[in-house]
Amino acid sequence: MFDASKSRFFIALLPPQDIQAYANEIKQHFADHYASQHAQKSPPHITLQPPFEWLDGKVSRLEASLREFTSQQESLSITLSGFAAFPPRVIYIDVVRSPELLSLQVQLMTHMEANLEIIDEVGKKRPFAPHMTVAFRDLTRQNFHAAWTEFANRQLYFEFLVDKLTLLIHDGRRWNIHSEFAFLSGSS
């Protein structure tokens, strides 16, 4: 049976470059002090649509659908506040759950399912928990506890405006930005 070539994608919100640089410094800290490098395989981001496979020959359809979706969306404010964890493996920068962010994620998931038949079964069973991962997967339980002692009460606060969705593609080693889709201009 012929299996057409597919790539892995996910859809996310990326913070401005200065906040990405800060988050990357934290990821580097985890690599240097806690032997956790896996989070360095993608730019700092807030996942809206988890990884999915898509036919390489139909990427233009995927992009057209995302362009259509974002043309109906307003820019939104994102707040990052402190650190949180999914014990015993994940530490992340906490993203404040605003009604606008939660609505955007639900609308995107609905759009992806209705227009592209891309369904996140896990996401349908549990609530959206927006976060920006700084350590996961290769963070051992012992290192998790040591790192969480360091980061549990560490202060961090950023506010920024997001005006686009980002489609990321996996190249076999890491996630890279494939394309970006601007939101409908807000009242700026």
Rank of each mutant, 00 (worst) to 15 (best):
D32L: 09
H45Q: 12
F128K: 05
I91M: 10
D171C: 03
S187K: 12
L55D: 06
Q28E: 14
S36F: 05
L48E: 10
Y22H: 13
A135M: 02
K164H: 15
N153A: 04
E25C: 08
I46V: 15
Q155D: 14
S60P: 04
D138Y: 02
P88E: 12
D3S: 11
A84Q: 13
P127K: 14
K164P: 08
L48G: 06
T79Q: 15
D56F: 07
L13E: 04
Q28A: 08
H38V: 05
F86E: 06
P88H: 06
P50N: 11
L14P: 01
P43A: 06
Y157G: 08
L13R: 03
A21R: 13
A31H: 14
I46S: 14
L80V: 01
M112Y: 06
H170Q: 01
L48M: 11
D32Y: 10
S98T: 13
P44W: 09
F136M: 08
R126S: 12
E113S: 12
L80F: 12
T166W: 00
T70F: 10
P50C: 05
D3L: 14
P43Q: 06
V96N: 07
K124W: 05
S65L: 09
D56L: 10
P88N: 08
A21F: 13
W54S: 03
L139S: 04
L48N: 07
F83N: 02
Q49G: 08
S77D: 15
E25K: 12
H111R: 05
T79A: 14
A64Q: 15
D171F: 06
V106M: 15
V122P: 07
A21T: 15
E68W: 13
P16K: 09
H38W: 10
Q105M: 02
N176A: 12
H111Y: 11
H111Q: 04
I19P: 01
K125G: 07
I119G: 04
I118T: 03
F136I: 00
I118D: 07
A12C: 14
N115S: 10
P51H: 07
L184N: 08
S185C: 09
M109L: 15
S98C: 06
L62C: 05
L161C: 10
L165I: 02
F83C: 00
D56V: 03
Q17Y: 14
G172V: 01
Q73K: 02
R173Y: 13
H45N: 11
P50H: 03
I91C: 10
N153M: 09
Q37P: 11
I118N: 09
D3C: 05
Y92Q: 03
N115T: 01
I46P: 12
K58L: 09
R67D: 15
K58V: 00
A182E: 07
I118E: 11
Y34L: 02
I177F: 08
E150G: 02
Q73T: 00
L101S: 01
L66E: 08
Q20S: 04
